[in-house]
């Protein structure tokens, strides 16, 4: 089996290793780079818990070979927060709107949603539901994930989120 020298930037830090051809990217991220926020839930590209951004595009990292990502810039949930260390609007949205229970799907949901609202700053509920339909959540029933994304989109547009979403934590 061939092995390959790869260098992949993970959240701005280059990680180099000699890896076997079959090493899955999710394992490289978790084990070589030690970033365990990215999870593995299904093996069949069904659940999206392993979603990371490769050069800004969300991808299911359990179905990418590490060698395929050689030279790429990856962003994982650990790299989502703003440069000044403050939480990304989505992270704030998910906690304000109770968009997570067990937290296992959350990193993937966040990475998908981050790309979604970057491309579509004011998505409708339908657009959000379609946009996150590659990510399964077994706990929340999705209502509050939709609201979390709406919250973040509003905030990034400079709109007070409490005027856009109705959740108990924001009720006056």
């Amino acid at each position: 089996m061939s092995t390959h020298n790869v260098t992949i930037s993970i959240n701005g830090t280059p990680v180099s290793a000699n890896v076997p051809a079959r090493l899955l990217l999710v394992h490289f991220i978790r084990e070589n780079a030690g970033q365990t926020g990215t999870h593995c839930g299904c093996d069949t590209t069904s659940c999206g818990a392993c979603t990371v951004q490769i050069n800004g595009t969300p991808v299911k990292s359990c179905t990418v070979l590490t060698v395929q990502a050689d030279g790429a810039e990856l962003t994982t949930v650990e790299g989502l927060a703003n440069k000044d260390g403050s939480l990304h609007a989505l992270q704030e949205g998910f906690t304000s709107c109770h968009g997570l229970h067990c937290g296992f799907c959350t990193p993937g949901m966040l990475m998908t949603s981050a790309a979604l609202i970057k491309e579509n700053p004011d998505p409708t509920e339908d657009e959000i539901r379609w946009g996150i339909s590659g990510n399964l959540c077994r706990c929340t029933g999705y209502n509050n994930i939709v609201k979390s994304v709406q919250y973040a989109a509003a905030k990034l547009r400079g709109v007070d989120p409490s005027t856009v979403v109705d959740v108990p934590s924001l009720r006056k």
Partner: peptide
Amino acid sequence: IADPIVRNK
């Protein structure tokens, strides 16, 4: 086709 994340690859 598939889902939005799969469609990216």
